[in-house]
Design a protein around this nucleic acid. Structure first.
Lengths: 344, 344
DNA sequence: TTGTACGCGTTATCAA
DNA sequence: TTGATAACGCGTACAA
């Protein structure tokens, strides 16, 4: 018995018909006698025949595969996005091939190469923190390969972007802290080359402005690595001066917020009585820490679904009007928990 | 077909040589004049030539792709495993195609079909909670397609399994609680059809036994869904009776532990003073919750790496001795934090 | 040193 | 109603 899978040729040989007949019979093409059709289908069943997707790809110049490039899988938000992507792709008969960059530009370029070699029909990307030159993506777009950016979106002509309303998320978060009576609200900002960092910060600034609170540059600190350790240390410094210290923190995301909370606790300060805290993304742990963390919900699954739906549309209908879909912005929602409400 | 993807034929035509010459020149085959080689390579560079992986797959009957089937991406442990898988696969020039089952058997079978159609060279699997019949996997093994199971491993002849020592993890956790002076230790067990649930429970039982503590069946409760809500409710019931209530919890995993912690707090009990808690898997949030949760480290990245290395070995060397690698067990490590140490 | 021919699995096209 | 052929892109045995 031959290794591997039965092919159309195997069926044809065994039944003494041509492979085209088998192909047509299997696909219920008109003009095949009922008899032949039955013979073929029965044998196919018996041999456990399965069409070879690789051969199909070659024949049709279409791989039914979409590529996904993300910074890292081990990141709650990205894992939810992947989940949404996989879900929609699977339902539409597309495969997902996955590549993580570990936030390295070199690796990212390498991933794009791999994707190209593998003839992906389209690509979903959230680029790395190191990426400032987008030519490897622009090349793809120039080759007319559909590309959709999500979450971290570049400023590229003809790019299609899916993201949440980071500005409004930042605004909501900050406004909420103001409404709760906090006045010296610090912002732990994200890496400055990411548009999301800029947007969240702008939302923060706008909320302060709108409430007539003057902006104190000392209260805005960038967290380039955006991990809990970095944020812990930054906060220790930030809280050193008891006079000028902030009374609330709006963090770029929940991990940063968690680091801040640890710093606050380690200084013997109370959350939310002394310091209020709001995060971003609503990581899984947000509701489980103590006190539960108020956070801006960033609907990862929906982002993944939406981005994939758009990508599939672009793949299936090349003449789609890019202008209309070039910037999809999903709504955020503030999930209020104890970390920011004094009388919760 | 994507515009601008140059093929060997394009190069051949332009240079007035045969495509075999181009093919050979590109791969530095002997017997090609330096001159031709240079011409070909230069033009390839200029045209941005990239070998078509699909054509190569067909030609070589090898896809350089491995499939990964997991219950869900949005699960910290699995996301770490995927990360390890992707890392090793990428380094070895293999692609990763991903399929999640959402814990559904039907979907799982469907995923296997997809993988087969796509001619994966090998498969990594952690099966769904619903799966009790493994014939869809056994078929693969019978077809001599390399399959490696990780974390959730079946009892199948010739299967290759990679897992952590769940028994010893359960034992460590329980022993630690005993050493801390806890005596009425409850176990919130995982879904009963998973070997990992059984193993962790056996470790728990053995530790009690070895310490001469009698086993109270009322203190062992299964959590079939293993989410925080379920565990919260189970714990409320478990703690209703102030006389017979447990003084510690060993949970199947950290999410279950987190649910338990919420229940404990909501009843006004203190952790670890009144109730000690130990989880499993060391989810990312374990160190961030209050009090930080003692947990059994389950090295997901290493599991992913190890499983992939073994799979690639099986793919590249069909004559490998399965007996020797049929059961790889990685060590767990107990990370002791405040949730289980009264005088931390 | 280079070219020809074939096959990997499939299907569209034309011919019978 | 069915068959033969070519083509998708590539590599390679064989021929020149």
């Amino acid at each position: 018995m031959k290794l591997g899978q039965a092919t159309i040729k195997d069926i044809a040989r065994e039944l003494n018909v041509s492979s085209s007949t088998v192909s047509r019979a299997l696909k219920d093409y008109p003009g095949i006698s009922f008899e032949t059709k039955k013979k073929v289908k029965d044998l196919a069943e018996k041999l456990n025949y399965r069409p070879n997707a690789i051969a199909l790809s070659l024949r049709k110049s279409k791989s039914f595969t979409i590529g996904v490039i993300i910074p890292e899988v081990v990141h709650f938000f990205f894992s939810t996005v992947i989940s949404g992507i996989e879900e929609v792709a699977f339902k539409n008969g597309y495969n997902v091939i996955l590549c993580q960059t570990n936030e390295k530009l070199e690796r990212e370029i390498n991933c794009v190469e791999t994707m190209l070699s593998n003839q992906i029909d389209g690509l979903l990307v959230s680029y790395s923190k190191e990426t400032t030159d987008f030519s490897h993506f622009i090349n793809l777009i120039d080759m007319e390969i559909p590309v959709v950016f999500f979450d971290r979106i570049p400023n590229i002509k003809n790019a299609v972007n899916v993201t949440v309303n980071d500005f409004s998320g930042g605004y909501q978060a900050t406004k909420h802290l103001i409404d709760q009576g906090y006045r010296r609200i610090a912002h732990l900002a994200g890496p400055s080359n990411l548009a999301i960092s800029k947007k969240r910060k702008e939302g923060y600034l706008a909320a302060l402005s709108d409430s007539g609170i003057s902006i104190d540059e000392n209260l805005i600190v960038e967290c380039p690595s955006a991990n809990e350790k970095e944020s812990f240390e930054i906060c220790l410094r930030l809280f050193k001066d008891p006079i000028n210290r902030p009374d609330a923190i709006f963090a770029h995301h929940d991990i940063v917020a968690a680091g801040a909370m640890m710093a606050i606790k380690s200084l013997g300060l109370r959350i939310p009585e002394d310091i209020g805290v709001v995060g971003f993304s609503n990581w899984q742990f947000a509701s489980m820490i103590d006190p539960p963390l108020t956070s801006v919900l960033q609907p990862g699954i929906q982002i993944g679904e939406k981005a994939t739906k758009i990508l599939l549309e672009m793949i299936q209908n090349k003449d789609i009007n890019h202008q209309e879909i070039s910037n999809v912005v999903l709504d955020t929602e503030l999930l209020i928990r104890k970390s920011s409400v004094k009388n919760y």
